[in-house]
Each structure stands twice: as structure tokens, then as C-alpha cells.
Amino acid sequence: MHAAIPLANEGAERTRRYLIGPAAVLQLERRAEELGLKVVGYYHSHPDAPAVPSEADREHAWPWYVYLIAGTSKRGAPQWSAWRLTGDRRRFRRLAIGAGDRLEGGSCTTSVS
């Protein structure tokens, strides 16, 4: 992974849900292309909730993308986990995160890696 780019949350209910609209996605894709990079996934946080995908995450997920989720609680550092939707859209599969891939939590709700 080369770059993590923060994106604005366009959603109305910003602490519980996130939305990155198609215009932002297209712009991001073009920017990545200019840099010779590829968008491989997205990250978002679950404020005061565990780092496991929610039903909303599953319903809206795309295959292939890696979804990084930061679960946060009032005590302790955010817990990161990585997920990918299964081909039948029924579940997420957890992916291993190596020590070198460790991300530090940022303040933005939604970002792109």
C-alpha cells in the first residue's frame, strides 16, 4: 500500500454512516491513475463500535475492494481489521493484516487507501 487519502463524508448522519459519492470516487480514480497507483480499498471507522463489518457495510460493499475498519472505544487505541466481500455477497472474509501494514488512526471518518 502506498498512500492513504482522506475523503469527505458526504453522508447526512456523519458519525454513524458514511457515503462517498460517484463524483468523488471518479476523481479519486483519476488522481490515482496519474500517480500510477490503483485504488485497492477504502477505510472507515466505527465510533464506539467493534471493528467488524456491519450489515450496512455488507449491503453496500463491492467485491474485490479491501475494506479496512477501525473499531474505536473510549479506552484504548483503535482496532483495525481488513475485510473483503465474498462473491455471493452474503459475508465478509477477514484478511490478515501484517505488522508492516499497520495504520495509524486519523481523525477523518472516511478515507481511501
Binding site: 458514511y18 471507522s45 463500535a49 450489515e55 460493499a61
Partner: peptide
Amino acid sequence: IVPSIAGGAVTMTGD
């Protein structure tokens, strides 16, 4: 075909 990316900690109301 362009994705939008969405989700979040809670499920939709009524879910």
C-alpha cells in the same frame, strides 16, 4: 459504471 462507497457502524433504521 461508477461505485459509490457507503456503510457505517449502524444498520439502517428498521433493519
